[in-house]
Amino acid sequence: MNIFRLTGDLAHLLAIIILLLKIWKTRSCAGISGKSQILFAIVYTTRYLDLVTTYVSAYNTLMKIFFLGSSFATVYLIYVKFKATYDHNHDTFRIEFLILPAVILALLINHAFTPLEILWTFSIYLESVAILPQLFMVSKTGEAESITSHYLFALGSYRGLYILNWIYRYAMESHYDLIAIVAGIVQTVLYCDFFYLYITKVLKGKKLQLPA
C-alpha cells in the first residue's frame, strides 16, 4: 500500500458516498446515469469474485464489500426506489457497445486464460469505459448539478491517483501490470474534458454548463 493508492481508494469511496447521499437526500436520481451505475455493479461483481477465495487484508475485504454493496444499492435506488425521477430520455447510451468489446478484448488480451483472470481482465476493461453513459448524459442535458460534478471529479481522480500508484510501484517494487495501467490511462483520459470544465467552472461557483 502507498499514499497514492490509499488516497485513490479514499477518493473512490468519497465519490460513491457523495452519489448515495445525493440520491438519498434529494430523493431523486435526476442527472444520474443508471446505465453507468449498472456497469459499475458489473465491474465490481466480476472483479471481486475472489472476495471469498483469497484474503489480502481486512482493508481490502472491507472495501470490496462496501463497493459491491454500494453499487447495488445505487442501482436499486435509481431503478426501484426513485424510479419516477430516473431520466431515461437522456440516459440512452447503448451499454452493450461497451460490454461486448470488453468481453472480446478480455478473451484476446489477458494474463492467463482462466475464468477468474478473464473476469478480472473484463472488469478492468469495462471500468475504463463505464463512465461513458454518465458523461454522455451530461453532454446531452448540457449541464450537471454541482453535486454530480463533485461525484465525477472524485471518481475521475481515483484512477488518476492509481496511475501515480503504478508509477510508484514500478519505481519502488519494479512491479507493473500493463493491462491495469493502459485501461487506467484510458479511463482517466476520458475525464480530462470534464476535469477542465470542473476546474474552470464549478470551482468558480458556476454551474457546469457544457458548450451547447
Binding site: R5, D9, H12, D50, T54, V56, S57, N60, M63, K64, F67, H111, W120, Y162, N165, H175, Y176, D177, I179, A180
Partner: peptide, 10 residues
Amino acid sequence: DVDLDSKDEL
C-alpha cells in the same frame, strides 16, 4: 508471474 500481486489492488 508479475501480475499476480496486482490483485491486491481494488
